[in-house]
Amino acid sequence: MRKRHSLFLLIVAILVQSVFAVQAGAAETYYDDIRGHWAEKEILFLEQRGIFKHGGNRHFNPDKTVSRGEALALVNRVLEDVYGRLATPVPQPYLDHRYPLKTEIEGLVANMQVLLDVNTGFVNDFRPGDLMVYNLHLASNGMLMKKTQKVNPEWWVPTPYLQYPMSREEASMILFHVLSPYKLRIVEPKINDVRLFYDGYSQWKHKSSYVDTVSPYAEAIREFQLFGGQRNFDPYSNMTRAQFAVVLTRLHHFLEGDASKQFKESTKRQQIAANLLLTAANRAFLDKDQQRLSSYVSEAAIESLTKLQAALPLHSYMAELKLKRDENSSDKLWVTGKYEHRQVGPYELEFLFEKDESNPFGHKITSIAYRER
Results as ranks from 00 to 15, higher is better:
252 H>S: 07
50 G>T: 10
107 G>Y: 00
25 G>E: 14
321 L>A: 09
223 E>D: 13
111 N>Q: 04
29 T>V: 13
96 D>K: 07
212 D>R: 06
241 R>C: 06
83 Y>A: 08
221 I>V: 09
86 L>Q: 08
90 V>C: 02
68 R>F: 00
13 A>F: 15
75 V>E: 01
352 L>K: 06
121 G>C: 02
140 S>T: 13
105 I>S: 00
345 G>Y: 07
53 K>T: 13
258 D>H: 09
12 V>Q: 08
40 E>W: 12
339 Y>V: 09
47 E>T: 14
62 P>I: 10
155 W>S: 08
309 Q>N: 15
10 L>P: 02
78 V>P: 01
141 N>E: 08
346 P>D: 05
38 W>K: 07
124 N>I: 08
294 S>H: 14
187 V>H: 03
256 E>F: 10
290 Q>M: 11
297 V>A: 11
38 W>P: 02
169 E>R: 01
330 S>C: 05
213 T>Y: 04
358 S>T: 15
224 F>D: 04
355 K>G: 05
254 F>M: 01
353 F>W: 11
65 T>N: 10
133 V>Q: 00
121 G>L: 04
186 I>R: 14
305 L>N: 14
87 A>L: 05
100 P>C: 08
278 L>C: 09
180 S>Q: 12
136 L>E: 08
320 E>I: 11
110 A>F: 01
232 N>H: 14
33 D>I: 13
76 N>P: 02
10 L>F: 15
247 V>H: 03
235 P>M: 04
280 A>K: 13
222 R>V: 02
140 S>R: 07
224 F>G: 02
132 M>P: 04
144 L>I: 07
221 I>G: 00
105 I>A: 03
148 T>P: 07
